[in-house]
Amino acid sequence: MHEQLETLLEMQDLHMQRRALEEGDVREFESGVFDMSVEEALAALDDKISELEHRLTGDVQERYRRVIGRRHRAVVPVLGGVCYGCFVAVPTSWASEADPNDKMNVCQNCGRFHYYPP
């Protein structure tokens, strides 16, 4: 897997965790069942996301910032040949490569980074 994609995946998962914690149900569950201090957790997630963002190279970082600002999710899976960000079919040649995650693939329609789940 491309190193930058790996970093983006981690960031995406952290963003998701952050958004979930802002929702009522998850927030209540995490603080009620697991005794989590939600505000501290949100701050810790922000710090980690920021640290990872600095690991992105120029063009990837630029695209990431542009996409995350507009579309909330910068990395989306491709399932059944369809981008799960904009639901437009992606060129089949990408998915037929040995491991499409070895290079950085970007949706030609919505601009999000693509990830091909195993």
Binding site: M16, Q17, P77, P117
Partner: peptide, 8 residues
Amino acid sequence: HCRSLVVN
């Protein structure tokens, strides 16, 4: 527990 893109 966690959510992650690596599981489908």
